[in-house]
Computed example of a mutant assay.
Amino acid sequence: MIRKKLRNKIPAGAELDQDTELEGLGLSSLQIADVVFALEDRFEFEFELERALAMKTVGDIVTVANQALSEHQA
């Protein structure tokens, strides 16, 4: 999902893995917010604002999304 959402926003040939830094991809805060909103819409949960603002890597997005999903399902 994250890779698909970022497909047209990141430089050609850029690798995405858990350690990929969002800043290193050249994403604006608006583009990162777009990914966050897409995940929220797709999985019907909300990111905790403080956690969302602290995300620095693709792995952080996955971790925060998984935490939000598990809290939402509880």
Rank of each mutant, 00 (worst) to 15 (best):
M1N: 10
R3M: 02
K5Q: 15
K5I: 15
L6H: 08
L6S: 06
R7V: 11
R7G: 00
K9G: 10
I10Y: 12
P11C: 06
A12T: 12
A12Q: 14
A12M: 12
G13A: 03
E15L: 11
E15I: 13
D17F: 08
D17Q: 10
Q18D: 15
D19Y: 07
T20F: 05
T20K: 08
E21C: 00
E21W: 00
L22T: 11
G24E: 08
G26E: 08
S28A: 07
S28F: 06
S29E: 15
L30H: 02
Q31L: 02
Q31G: 06
I32N: 02
A33R: 03
D34W: 02
D34E: 15
V36R: 05
F37D: 03
E40I: 12
E40M: 10
D41P: 01
D41K: 14
D41H: 11
R42H: 13
R42F: 09
F43L: 14
F45I: 01
E48C: 03
E48G: 02
R51I: 00
A52W: 02
L53A: 11
L53W: 03
L53R: 09
A54V: 10
A54F: 08
K56M: 06
K56W: 02
V58H: 03
G59K: 02
V64W: 01
A65M: 15
N66I: 00
Q67Y: 01
Q67V: 12
A68V: 10
A68F: 07
A68C: 09
L69Y: 04
E71W: 07
E71P: 02
Q73G: 01
A74V: 11
